[in-house]
């Protein structure tokens, strides 16, 4: 794997409730620089919500998110208050890749990638163009710069979305089931792009159902169940010899998982 540095992300006692239903019931986790951490869990276990709390698309009900040593939000009377103006620079430094890509359909691939650097970072136009070219080339789409999303395959769209997030030169990348909406034959190209990123030392927090990918790429795997981290460990322990019955049951349900040599 990659060399490890300081801590990029720490989550302490994170809770999130939607109305009366508590989805996250106290999560603690830490991601070091260059690490790839994979979150597993059945649907409804809260893994997407956890990811969305890291860039504050969801505002946590309790607990703290610490990014690069700085706790986000201000504590007052036991509650944590968040101001939108404070969250914007956080989001600018944390990239997110969505299940359904969410590319901007009225912009070309290049314009999609330029949009963040231009509008949010306010970089000069020429530099944005250069960045867009560089990151689209990196995800293997140098020849699709001027294509609109509707003319790209699902796999290509998702790689544009990855380039869009990378163009912000984020400290941390979040992947929310990035391959779940893809046709099976397109999954591989996106996973390969993600693996390359991890190999280059990108810090990543990944929600996925691709156990082979988790095995090959993760430094650490967390299994979420019922809003809590039920079990965690390195992939060759958690995925191969899980201690908890629930984890075993979950892994059995993913019969497609074949050990080591898998897809990589």
């Amino acid at each position: 794997m990659s060399e490890q540095g300081g801590e990029v992300l720490r989550i302490e006692g994170l809770r999130k409730a939607f109305g009366a239903t508590e989805v996250l019931k106290g999560i603690d986790l830490s991601v070091a620089k260059g690490e790839a951490v994979v979150l597993l869990g059945a649907s409804g276990s809260g893994k997407s919500t956890l990811l969305r709390c890291v860039n504050f698309l969801e505002i946590p009900s309790a607990g703290r998110v610490v990014i690069d040593g700085t706790a986000v939000g201000r504590e007052r009377d036991g509650a944590v208050l968040y101001r939108e103006a404070e969250l914007i620079p956080i989001r600018a430094h944390v990239g997110m890749v969505f299940q359904h890509f969410n590319l901007f359909p009225h912009m070309t691939a290049r314009e999609n990638v330029m949009e963040g650097p231009r509008t949010v970072l306010r970089l000069p136009r020429a530099e944005c163009r250069e960045r867009a070219g560089r990151y689209l080339a990196k995800v293997g789409l140098a020849d699709k710069m001027d294509a609109y999303p509707s003319h790209l395959s699902g796999g290509q769209q998702q790689r544009v979305a990855i380039a869009r997030a990378l163009a912000m030169e984020p400290r941390l990348m979040l992947f929310d089931e990035a391959t779940s909406a893809l046709d099976p034959e397109l999954v591989g190209e996106v996973l390969q792009t993600m693996k390359d990123l991890s190999d280059e030392g990108m810090t990543m927090l990944i929600v996925t159902h691709e156990l082979g990918f988790a095995y090959a790429v993760a430094d650490k795997v967390l299994f979420l169940h019922d809003g809590r981290i039920h079990e965690e460990g390195p992939p060759d322990e958690l995925l191969v010899r899980p201690r908890e019955a629930r984890t075993r049951e979950f892994l059995r349900g993913h019969a497609s998982f074949r050990l080591p040599e898998a897809e990589f």
Binding site: N55, L57, E84, A85, I88, P89, R91, A92, H93, V94, G95, M96, F98, H100, N102, L103, F104, P105, H106, E115, G116, T119, V120, L121, A161, R164, A165, M168
Partner: peptide, 30 residues
Amino acid sequence: IERGQWEAAKAIGMARGQALRRVVLPQAVK
């Protein structure tokens, strides 16, 4: 306009006004 568009704009650090002007309105107007 789907919620995902707002979220994608937010996720790259756009403020609400920027997301509206750059991402949502251009699609909505059509």
